[in-house]
Simulated scan of single mutants.
Amino acid sequence: MLTVWYNTRCPVCDAGIDRQKRRLIEAVKAGRVEFRDINLEPHALSSHGVSLEDIRRRLHAADAAGNLLIGADVAIAVLLLTPGEGWLASLFGNRLMLPLTRLAYDRFADLLYGWNRRKGRW
């Protein structure tokens, strides 16, 4: 199972996860993926050294083996599970593109985090 923690107080994050939930309804029902609001479980990943602010800044997930995924790696893992979107995971998650994908994700996440902070969405 892939457990994804995200910030429902961020309208962009919430809309993106809602879209994926609709696309992944069968995977959710089958227990292959779960989406959880970090605002309801602020210490969920503290055993991994991850703070509430870390998760508000970037998506975090734990896979079935308990491995922690962060940022673009979470997005790619979700795309791999999403019907019809595996090609996107292959494109953005391949050995050559992954460093650029991570960089782009991190810069976007930083901008989004700053915007949410300025809007008082905490």
Results as ranks from 00 to 15, higher is better:
Ser90Phe: 06
Trp115Ala: 09
Arg118Leu: 15
Thr3His: 04
Arg56Pro: 08
Met1Arg: 11
Ile38Glu: 02
Leu91Lys: 05
Leu40Cys: 07
Leu40Gly: 06
Asp106Leu: 04
Ala89Gly: 00
Phe108Gln: 13
Ala44Gly: 08
Thr3Gly: 04
His48Arg: 15
Ile17Asn: 01
Leu91Cys: 08
Asp106Met: 07
Ala109Thr: 03
Gly16Val: 02
Arg23Thr: 06
Pro99Thr: 07
Asn67Met: 10
Pro42Met: 05
Arg22Gln: 14
Tyr6Glu: 03
Asp14Met: 08
His48Cys: 11
Arg121Cys: 08
Glu41Ser: 11
Ser90Tyr: 05
Asn7Cys: 09
Ala72Asn: 01
Leu103Val: 06
Gly120Met: 08
His60Arg: 03
Val33Ala: 02
Leu98Met: 09
Leu2Ser: 05
Arg36Ala: 11
Val12Ile: 10
Leu69Ile: 04
Arg117Gly: 07
Gly120Lys: 12
Ala62Asp: 02
Ala27Trp: 06
Ala75Lys: 05
Pro11Gln: 07
Tyr105Trp: 06
Arg95Ser: 12
Gln20Pro: 07
Thr82Lys: 01
Leu96Val: 15
Arg23Ile: 05
Ala15Thr: 13
Leu103Met: 15
Arg9Tyr: 13
Ala77Asn: 00
Trp5Lys: 09
Arg22Cys: 06
Pro11Ser: 00
Ala89Lys: 00
Ile25Arg: 14
Asp73Cys: 00
Asn39Ala: 10
Gly71Pro: 03
Gly71His: 02
Leu112Gln: 14
Arg36Thr: 06
Val78Cys: 01
Tyr105Ala: 07
Gly114Pro: 06
Gly66Met: 06
Ala15Gly: 11
Arg58Ala: 13
Asn94Pro: 01
Asp110Ala: 15
Ala72Trp: 00
Arg107Ser: 10
Arg95His: 10
